[in-house]
Structures are given as structure tokens and as C-alpha cells.
Design a protein around this nucleic acid. Structure first.
Lengths: 224, 224
DNA sequence: ATACCCATGAAAATATTACTGATAGAGGAT
DNA sequence: ATCCTCTATCAGTAATATTTTCATGGGTAT
């Protein structure tokens, strides 16, 4: 597996590299946030091990920016802060797993194997869930706390886009091209309409999620 | 990229403008040397395309005058004279590159890209980072050590100007023309207001950067 | 001391952008 | 063919952010 390790503690780096390479992974290392993001954006790795406290740019920001550019490489956060609150924040910002320093290498190794497995069995027709809703993209069925309903095709694709990137800002253009296709001949105002539809659906199924508008930029799915 | 084109051949101007704008550059045009120099001295462009033979003042002189005033904008000379001697003279007088007419647009385009890279400062859609902040000009999002927030359009452009020239004193007029555009109908006091806004933003996100006022001259972005 | 320049906050003016509902067309199903 | 749902467009309105202006007071250099 090709692994990108972004971590400023040189000792830890060396140890990890040694261990990872022993398990026949290929490791690229980098010691600060800005360079890390550059490498991350190359989208050339199967897994990113990301430290949280980094020079020049903090780890969570690196992750957030990468996710905003639609890089979906799995990420395991290495964090010195063991508090629950921080863990939640980390997962929300798009990490797939986290591990609290100091950790036994075996623990990390297990998680890497697990990511590998999860990745391998990825299938198209899964149930997408976030917070209090779930969406079956085969049946186009949206389930919330109080109700269920069927979405139309467009509504469905739109929801998929949001549910795959909760909590991050999506530009209108980005949404348009993902839902309608790149430079599809569609009036931009159409997006407004579908946002409107989707909001009604979300509120109908009793979800506490809502679509926040970032004026002049786009929208973001968030929990109230 | 913001480009100033000083060239008297109207046909060429039109063609170039069309092409440059197709590549999403913003072009200001002017057809004679003296006016060209005025615009040049505004120091509001990322690149100047300068013809050598011009009415009212020849191109090399324009360039020389501008350099005397410490305007360091990169310049590409457009010249009809292909002789080696002239080339050398052109580069000596402060041009960064030259191109011999007639030229294929592709050739010019390549040199423009090269200037952009060499300069390094110009990023179409990238994360601008300096010290402890980073600014995403797509989402207009400013990230600092403790917080993130969205900037308005003007605030954003203003920050871009500063972050691209950290530690350098920027004259008020230079800032004005880069943020509001050359001779935009704007009261100068407006700049004060926006500096004020930006300072608040910087402190809100917890940055240690601040905007120092150079009395009577302008401002400078510096680390405390 | 004084003249100039800048900082600051508030408020007015402006411009932009989004929401919403109505409407009409496209395409599928019966 | 007819109904029906989905999709797209449009226009009027509402909401809000942004930009600008203005007035006041503080600071600085000569």
C-alpha cells in the first residue's frame, strides 16, 4: 500500500517508516502541513497518516482542504489529544479513523489492515448515512427520524453530493457539475430550486440536518 | 492574471486581448507610450506586455522609467526587431523576457505561464499561505490558528495583495488600484476602512500577523 | 501648537444573491 | 392518447451582505 505520512516528530517518523516498510508498504514522508497538503492533493496514495499538530498548517485544516478538493483517500489521524471532543471534531472533518498517541505500532497496523479491507469491499449501492438520516441510492429512499419518502433522480444525486461531504462548503459550480454534469446546459437557478426541494424533504422526514447557504459561494450540509 | 498591454497596433491588440481573456486573464490596454507609463506606474498589474515602437514614447524608455520608480512588475517585450543586439539591450533595460513579432500566440502563452511560475506569487485557485494563516480564494475562507471565517470580496482581494507581498511596504495607491482597479471612482478613505476590517479578521482568527501602517506611504503585512 | 494623516464605529446606500411559487415542457407509463 | 411525475425556467420578492460615506477623535511629525 502507498502511504503518505505527514508528521513532524522525526523520531516517530523514522520508527513508523521502518515498521511500515517492514510490512511492505511504500511510504512518503513529509514534516509540515503545507507540503503535506501539496502531496495530499496529488491524490497518489492509498492512505494518509496525518498528525494533527503540524508546522505551517494544522492537520485538520489539511484534511478539510483536501476533502474540499474531492480527494477521498482514507485518512488516519494521529493525535496527541485524547479528549473525546477532539476526536469527534476530527471525524467530522473527514477522517476515517484516529489513533491516540502514544500508540503501539500493532494498534496502528490493525487499523491500516481494516482500512485496506474496508476499501477493498467498497460497493456502489450502499446505504449512505449521516447524522439522523440515511439514503438508499438504489431505491432513492430517504429515511429520517419520523418519516420516509422517495426522492426524484435529481434530488437524489444532490443529496448524495451533500451527504458525502457533510460539514464542508461546496461551491455552487462544484455542485452543478456533480449533479448535472460538467458544463451541462442548465440554468444555474435550477440549483436554487432543487435546494429548495431538498430542504422540504429533509424537514418532512424530521431530520435535524439543514442546508446552510454560504452566500455568494455555495451551500453546506450541517447539523443544527 | 492582471495584464497591462501597451501596443499601438490595434489589430494585434484586439487579437491578443481576445486570446488572453479566453485564458481568464484580465487585460488593460493602451496604445501609446506616455499613457502606458502612467498605467505602468500605478503598479497594479501582474505582468506588462510592452511593445517597443510606440507613439509619444518608446517602449524601452517606458520600461526604464518604470524601473527607476522601483516598479518591479515582470515585463515581456514585444519587438519587431529580431537582431541580437536589440535583444540584449532590451533585457539590460529591465525586461524579463522578450518575444519577436510576428509570434504564435502559443509561444506568448508559454512565456506568460513561465513568468507566472517564476514569480510563484500568482496562483489561480490555490491556497495562499503565509506564516500562520492561509486563505482559500475560491471559498474566500481565511484560516488561522484558532478560527476560520469567510471574507467579503473586497476583504479577500485586499488580503491577497498583502499575502502576496508580505514584509514589503505597499503604497496606498498601489493597493487601491490593485483592489479597486485603476482609477476606480472610490474615495481613498475607503481603504482605511478595509484595512480596519482586515485587521479585525486577522485578530479574530488568532493570527500573529498584523498590518503595519507606514505613515504617509502605505501599509505592510508583518509578523509580530 | 498645528496641520495632517489615520483609526474607528455607525449608519446609509447599494448591489447582490437567494427563495419561492407558478408554469410549461419532456418523457414515461398505462 | 392521456395522465402523471419529473425537470427546467422564469419572474417577483425578500433577505442580507457588502460597500461606501461620514463624523469624530487620536496620534505624529515638524
Amino acid at each position: 500500500m502507498k502511504i503518505l505520512l505527514i508528521e513532524d516528530d522525526e523520531n516517530l517518523c523514522e520508527t513508523l517508516c521502518f515498521q511500515l516498510e517492514k510490512e511492505h508498504h511504500q511510504v512518503d514522508v513529509c514534516h509540515d502541513g503545507r507540503d503535506g497538503l501539496d502531496l495530499f492533493l496529488q491524490d497518489a496514495h492509498d492512505l494518509v497518516l496525518l498528525d494533527r499538530m503540524l508546522p505551517t498548517m494544522n492537520g485538520l485544516l489539511v484534511l478539510k482542504k483536501a476533502r474540499e478538493k474531492n480527494i477521498n483517500t482514507p485518512v488516519i489521524l494521529l493525535t496527541a489529544l485524547g479528549e473525546l471532543y477532539d476526536r469527534i471534531e476530527g471525524l467530522d472533518s473527514g477522517a476515517d479513523d484516529y489513533i491516540v498517541k502514544p500508540f503501539a505500532y500493532e494498534e496502528l497496523s490493525a487499523r491500516i489492515r481494516s482500512i485496506g479491507r474496508r476499501n477493498g469491499t467498497y460497493n456502489e449501492n450502499q446505504l449512505l448515512t449521516y447524522a439522523d438520516i440515511s439514503y438508499d441510492n438504489e431505491l432513492r429512499e430517504l429515511n429520517g427520524p419520523t418519516n420516509s419518502l422517495q426522492l426524484s433522480g435529481r434530488e437524489g444525486s444532490l443529496l448524495e453530493v451533500f451527504i458525502q461531504s457533510p460539514g464542508i462548503t461546496l461551491r455552487r459550480m462544484a455542485i452543478l457539475s456533480r449533479v448535472w454534469g460538467i458544463d451541462a446546459p442548465v440554468e444555474e437557478g435550477n440549483l436554487d430550486t432543487y435546494i429548495h426541494f431538498l430542504r422540504k424533504r429533509l424537514s418532512y422526514v424530521g431530520s435535524r440536518l439543514n442546508i446552510k447557504t454560504i452566500r455568494g459561494i455555495g451551500y453546506m450540509l450541517e447539523e443544527t
